[in-house]
Nucleic acid binder design. Structure first.
Length: 368
DNA sequence: AACGCGGGGTA
DNA sequence: TACCCAGCGTT
């Protein structure tokens, strides 16, 4: 069967030449739905959490994948997914694990509140004796918002709920030539277009299209099944939809850190608050505006009860996070300065920042 | 509605 | 460098 638009929605331009006329409004979504679903059946991605029947996937596997993939690209998420599922194959295993083990399995993945909420939610699920089976049930769990609730309820339970994520936003903004799509606008349009007979496949299809064809910078319109309906394609500048979001400035932060011990056994502190909360790391002291390293280092030593030690500079580490760019001067304190207070580094969940700092002691790779 | 939250890929 | 990524919780 052809996936070309029917006469009802026939656009005037559907060749490789630059289109010049906008497509007709979408009065009947059926042909568009079929075009995308045909494309999906042929070209959809093969992903490790897509096991089981369409609309009847394993809820635990889908749930973990959706949490893991929040603000994380699929190519990277797959690696973490395998590691996490190996560590916690079932929701019971996850619920019974200590938080430190959960964070360790999440190590390096970022946005660690996702892991803390997933852990709490798993305990809620186990205590109740069953997974939620509806959108509203999933939405009530910590860490589950509108996107994840729609994804799990459709993919695992076949509920007709439209997902709205970055891919959906971009695809719909282009098809409908909306430069400033609000969250409410995207959700409403996604609800309109959702295929009522294959909601799970439809949701996966739109996201696959956004991830593999309708990409942010260089969309491959010639192989897009929605080209004939796409107003952004017709405009000749599809990549200009939607308009870029303004982003907060990155704050420059300087700090000193103390590596007491060695690369395998070190003094670690558990970080509190929202920034890397729950993770362990080297004791760190921020250098206040106008302050200097010596002052910060003195405060740090005092806090640790190591006033009289003589730290040696190990090197500099830079690390960029969402809104911060950290430059950390790392000092080493080998020997027995904190005998009895060091812990095995390999068993703690650390951020990339701390792994970089520890690597200063590991020799050759500091030259890379 | 706006902001903060990791870390890395891409142009 | 700027922007983006299978978003969510808080304010």
């Amino acid at each position: 069967m052809s996936a070309e638009p029917t006469a009802n929605t026939e656009p005037t331009a559907n060749t490789a030449s630059l289109p010049s006329t906008a497509p007709a409004p979408i009065t009947d979504p059926a042909p568009l739905r079929r075009a995308l679903l045909d494309w999906f059946d042929e070209s959809g991605r093969d992903l490790p959490w897509r096991v089981g029947p369409e609309g009847g996937r394993d809820p635990y596997r889908v749930w973990v994948a959706e949490i893991l993939l929040q603000q994380t690209q699929v190519v990277r998420g797959r690696l973490y997914y395998e590691r996490f599922l190996t560590a916690f194959p079932t929701v019971q295993a996850l619920a019974e694990a200590p938080q430190g083990a959960v964070l360790k399995a999440w190590e390096g993945c970022g946005y660690y509140a996702r892991a803390r909420n997933l852990h709490r939610a798993a305990q809620t699920v186990v205590a109740s004796g069953e997974f939620p089976t509806t959108y509203d049930g999933w939405l009530a769990l910590p860490g589950v918002g509108p996107y994840t609730a729609a994804a799990v309820s459709s993919l695992a339970y076949g509920e007709a709920r439209a997902v709205s994520d970055g891919n959906v936003r971009r695809v719909l903004a282009r098809v409908l030539a909306e430069r400033q799509p609000t969250d409410a606008w995207v959700q409403a349009r996604a609800d309109d277009l959702l295929d009522p007979l294959r909601p799970a496949a439809w949701n996966e299809a739109v996201m696959d299209l956004g991830a593999t064809v309708c990409t942010p910078k260089a969309p491959e319109c010639p192989r897009c099944p929605l080209r004939g309906w796409c107003a952004a394609y017709a405009s000749g500048e599809p990549a200009s939809y939607p308009a870029p979001k303004r982003r907060a400035a990155v704050q420059e932060v300087r700090a000193v850190a103390l590596l007491v011990g060695d690369a395998e056994h070190a003094l670690l502190e558990q970080r509190a608050g929202t920034l890397l909360g729950g993770l362990y790391g080297l004791p760190l002291e921020e250098i206040s505006a106008g302050g200097d390293q010596a002052g910060a280092l003195a405060r740090l030593q005092a806090r640790l009860g190591l006033d009289h030690a003589r730290p040696e500079p190990l090197g500099e580490v830079t690390h960029t996070m969402t809104h911060r760019r950290l430059q950390v001067s790392v000092y080493g304190l080998p020997g027995t300065a904190a005998v009895g207070r060091t812990v095995p580094v390999a068993q703690a969940a650390l951020s990339r920042l701390d792994h970089k700092a520890l690597a200063l002691l590991r020799g050759p790779q500091r030259l890379l």
